[in-house]
Structure formats: C-alpha cells, structure tokens
Amino acid sequence: MRSRVLGASVATVLALSACGGNLDDSASDAGSTFPERAVRVLVGQDAGGSTDLIARALAEPASADLKKPVTVLNKAGANGGVAAKELAGAEADGYTLMVFNGSLAYITPLAVAADEAVDINGFEVVTGVSQDDYVLVANPKTGFKTVKDIVDAKRPITFATTGVGTGSQLCQELLFAQASVDATAVPFNGGAPALTAALGGQVDVAAVQLGEGQSQIKAGKVTPIVTFAAERPAYLPDTPTAQESGYTALVQQSRAIVAPKGAPRETLDRLRAAFQKAFAEQKYKDFNAQRSLTPNEVDGATLLRQWNASRDTYRGLIEKYKIDLSGKS
C-alpha cells in the first residue's frame, strides 16, 4: 500500500513538473523524480534461460510502477562477466541495472583466475530476488534412490554438471568428496543438456536447478536423490536435503538486482519499492511457483551478507576437501 502511495505521488510530481511548476517542492530531488526515462536491466545470459525469464517477469510489473519502460538487454558471456563489466562501467544513476547471478559472485571466483573474478562488493544491491535449489537426479536404470545406494554401488560413477565453476559442479563435488565416491565430472553447457544426458543414461547422475528438473521428476523419468537446499523445498517435500543425509553441501543459485557502485540512495530505494511491488503481484508469485523458485526478497545489506558468507564457506570447504573447481585436476 505504501509503495502505491509513493507511486501515485511520483506520478503527481511528474505531472506537475511537466507543467513547469513545483520547483520549491521538497520532492524535487533526484530520488523522487526518478525515473525520467527508461530503465535498462542487463542480463548476463541468453534469452530464454532462468535468469532471463526472471528479469522479464519482473520488468513488466516494475515498469507499471515506475511508469517508464523497463527493458531487458541480454549480454551473454563469461557466465555473466561481460554484463557485470558493462554494469561496472555504466553511469551510477540507476538507469542501468543487472539481474546478478549469485554463482558469479560466490562460485565462479573459486574456479577462475583472481583477475577475472567479479566482486559483488563493488556494486550496489537494489534487492534480493529469489533462490533456486539444486537437485541431484539419477537415471532410473542406475537403481540409485539415495546417496547410500551410490556409495554402496562401490563403482566409479559419472556426473553431469551444467558447466565449470557452476553451483551444479560445486554441490556434486562436495557431496561425492565427502561420501568418498570415485566420481568423474562431465561438464555440459547448461541445465537442459545436463538433464538430457541423465535422461538418456549417458551419465549416472546430474545436478540441475529444481525448475529445470521438476517435470522429468514428476514423470518418473529421473529419480530425485537429494536437494542441496537448507531445508526441504516446498516443491519437492519428499526428497531429503544433503544436510539431512549427513553431508555439508548447501549450494543454491541466488539472484539479485544490482546497480553500479555509487548510485544515489533515494534512487535505489525507489527501485526497491518498484520491485517489491512486482514481487507482490500474484502473476509473479505464480511464476515463482512454476519455476520452483523460493523468494529471497531481502534488502541489499542482507543479500551482501548472504553472498559473502557463501563465498567464504565454499572457499573453506573446497580447501578442506581438496576440490579443484577449475577442472584441471
């Protein structure tokens, strides 16, 4: 309700300023006249992927609230590194934003050279968006139903990942290292090919995002083994988490709306209000349910804490279990 009032007052201000008056209005600072033109949202992945769909699902309702177009611009490359670089170089006025993938901030730096890593602390976080849980699935022909089955099989296994330096790789490496399973990672280019490899029995298991695997799990074409979530996701209540099975492998994909460092506080607040309004829309909630996304609509400071903590935890874990995410070992 509060944000609707804010939206209405912005509209009034805009209307007044269009008439050429209101110069003495206290609301004429940068924050409340924002936005005066279209807002651009960069997406570091190709059109059609999860991140892109989230950006597009948010752009429409956010634009309705901001009363200016919110356009999505795909700049795929380097796991989102290309878009992050563009964002870092953009003017810090709130007109250029990005849907930032958590993995770029807390997993990719563990796999690539230090000078290529992107530091999320060099940006302003507008708002957290949602989390996507990973699920380990097996081809039914393997007979694997639990992690114990995999361990008891006492044979080397192959696992598909969605790429090098992704959450899909990290969670499986952590699990198999702790379970002492002789497992070979086979990187694929994204969730769909990794899942297809498990469906076709090319690999024994694969870890994919819940939304990607859900329909195949429901159809019984793949068996869910564990999720890597903190607690059982509402979308998959009967599958244990890795934690429950006794392994430390809490890995999630998380997404946030991010602006260049130094964007004015009022502008960031105005944007957060607009996105919060978008989060509240029933259609957006339905979208989350459809994609099995768990809302994580926290403020910027909380999100930074979450992501920095994840990065430090993962760094500790891969050192402890001697995992090399770069795939060179």
Partner: peptide, 8 residues
C-alpha cells in the same frame, strides 16, 4: 574460455 578446465 575452455568448457572443461577454466583456461582462456
């Protein structure tokens, strides 16, 4: 970037 080992 190599798809298998992260080398440029």
């Amino acid at each position: 970037r190599d798809d298998f080992i992260s080398v440029e």
